[in-house]
């Protein structure tokens, strides 16, 4: 169900739109809504976080009510509705990870970056988040970089190394 006032200008690169189209193609022709999670992810990868305009743009692109896309964007943890640093670091502190040093990792990061959970370093480089189980407990402690890259066994030494890698 589309609204009459389709946003006419694109908020996303042609490449991202092509990726979204590939997502849409996975689902039946009348179920473009299924691609909303993928589309929001692709938009977030390009822009780092989701603005309301972007959510509305994607909703219109898929022909769904903006509120439907907004519900999705605010329900799932990994979408960022506020600006985040260049690198978002999410540390799992759930029980299995906690038993193997999850909090140690988190505290080390807090101290090293000088920020708490849900904060961003002054230079805008890092944002720290507390995560729930990432389904990788055997590799604890685990840290997720920018939602898509999992780092295992994040001992303080491993963290130092990783942070140095992240430009």
């Amino acid at each position: 169900m589309s609204t009459n006032n389709l946003t006419t200008h694109n908020l996303l690169s042609a490449e991202s739109l092509a990726q979204i189209d590939r997502e849409v193609a996975k689902y039946p022709a009348d179920q473009a809504r299924s691609a909303v999670m993928g589309a929001l992810r692709i938009a977030q990868v390009e822009k780092r976080y989701l603005t309301n305009d972007m959510i509305e743009f994607i909703a219109n692109y898929l022909g769904i009510a903006p509120m439907m896309a907004y519900e999705v964007a605010t329900f799932y943890n990994m979408y960022d509705m506020k600006p985040v640093g260049k690198h978002k670091l999410t540390v799992c502190t759930n029980l299995p990870c906690a038993l193997s040093g999850g909090y140690t990792t988190a505290n080390y990061l807090k101290q090293k970056l000088g920020i708490d959970f849900n904060e961003t370093t002054a230079d805008g480089k890092f944002t720290l988040k507390e995560g729930e189980c990432m389904g990788a407990c055997g590799y604890a402690p685990v840290m997720l970089v920018n939602n898509h890259s999992m780092c295992n066994h994040m001992t303080p030494e491993a963290i130092d190394k990783k942070l140095a890698e992240l430009e």
Binding site: K26, M37, G38, R41, Y76, E132
Partner: peptide
């Protein structure tokens, strides 16, 4: 067969 990627919801 297609993959669908979740985004953080147990």
């Amino acid at each position: 067969l297609h993959g669908h990627h979740g985004y953080g919801a147990y």
